[in-house]
């Protein structure tokens, strides 16, 4: 007998480490329950069965780094009702966007003997540089609880509940003593988007910004504070050039301190 058809979910990979899509398989307690509610229609990391589109929801992991991928993402957009990017690669270009600050050909010859075999773009760019994205889920990696929340929200047609304040607020909320003030450690918490639950400070280290910049951020003020604590320009550049180096506020701040530009 015919049943109400389940919404179809697709998972797509571009340049990435696989960690964000693995978060879906890491939902050990919820995975079978989730699969009752939705049809996992395209998820090559988990299944060799592939259903044709269109899909109700596409999750996109990874950044655009090759001419072929720059084409492929448009096809995926056309076959998706909603498209959500998951993780720092897809939302900001990822760690591989460090190439954007140099000549990529220099990198190719460091790594590969026969550069002519390698087909790559000058820059690693976020998905939103290429197509319209319905929602961006932050993190390197994403938080699996937030992933489930976002999937549920889109399938029910409501706004996802993912706070946009800074990691600093999360620290205060969990009662962690400030590592910058109390221990003199460099910390990106004041400029970083919430989502991890302020993990690093609770492990006695400064935040390294893996959820990327919060919405309205004051990176200049953080740099001034880091300088007061003894950081030189090179350290400030490296601080902002991490897993979200090409996200606009972090990119702009690192360029201000990059000797190459001054």
């Amino acid at each position: 007998m015919s049943q109400i058809s389940k919404p179809k979910l697709a998972v797509w990979k571009f340049a990435s480490c696989d960690g964000c899509q693995l978060s879906l398989l890491d939902c050990e307690d919820d995975l079978l329950a989730v699969s009752q509610e939705i049809e996992i229609a395209h998820f090559p990391e988990a299944s060799r069965a592939v259903m044709k589109g269109p899909y109700d929801l596409s999750l996109v992991e990874g950044s655009i780094t090759t001419p072929h991928d720059a084409e492929r993402i448009h096809k995926i957009r056309r076959s998706s009702k909603y498209l959500i990017t998951i993780g720092a690669c897809a939302t900001a270009g990822g760690i591989q966007a460090l190439r954007n600050f140099k000549d990529v050909n220099e990198f190719i010859s460091i790594v590969y003997a026969t550069p002519s075999f390698i087909d790559t773009l000058q820059k690693s760019t976020p998905i939103s540089d290429h197509i319209k994205v319905d929602f961006e889920l932050r993190g390197c990696p994403i938080d699996k609880g937030q992933l489930i929340e976002v999937i549920c929200a889109f399938l029910k047609g409501r706004k996802p509940n993912t706070p946009a304040h800074s990691t600093c607020i999360e620290c205060k909320r969990r009662g962690t003593v400030c590592v910058m003030v109390a221990q003199g450690k460099m910390c990106m918490g004041p400029v970083t988007h919430a989502g991890c639950g302020a993990l690093c400070p609770s492990y006695n280290r400064g935040c390294y910004g893996c959820f990327g910049p919060q919405e309205t951020t004051n990176t200049g003020s953080l740099s001034a504070q880091l300088k007061k604590m003894g950081a030189n320009d090179d350290e400030i550049v490296r601080t902002f050039r991490g897993f979200n180096a090409y996200a606009e506020p972090f990119r702009r701040e690192s360029e201000l301190h990059d000797k190459k530009n001054n």
Binding site: F14, A15, S16, C17, D18, G19, C20, Q21, L22, T65, T66, D69, G94, I95, Q96, L98, R99, K102, V104, E106, F107, I108, I110, V111, Y112, I118, T120, S124, C140, P141, Y208, R238, F243
Partner: peptide, 28 residues
């Protein structure tokens, strides 16, 4: 799989950063 050139951009980074950067080679 598109190349990401880790060995290229590790150059110039601090010895303390290699473990967090290279972790991103593989989420598994």
């Amino acid at each position: 799989e598109p190349p990401r050139f880790f060995e290229g951009f590790l150059r110039g980074r601090d010895f303390n950063e290699a473990s967090d950067i290279t972790a991103r080679i593989c989420g598994i």
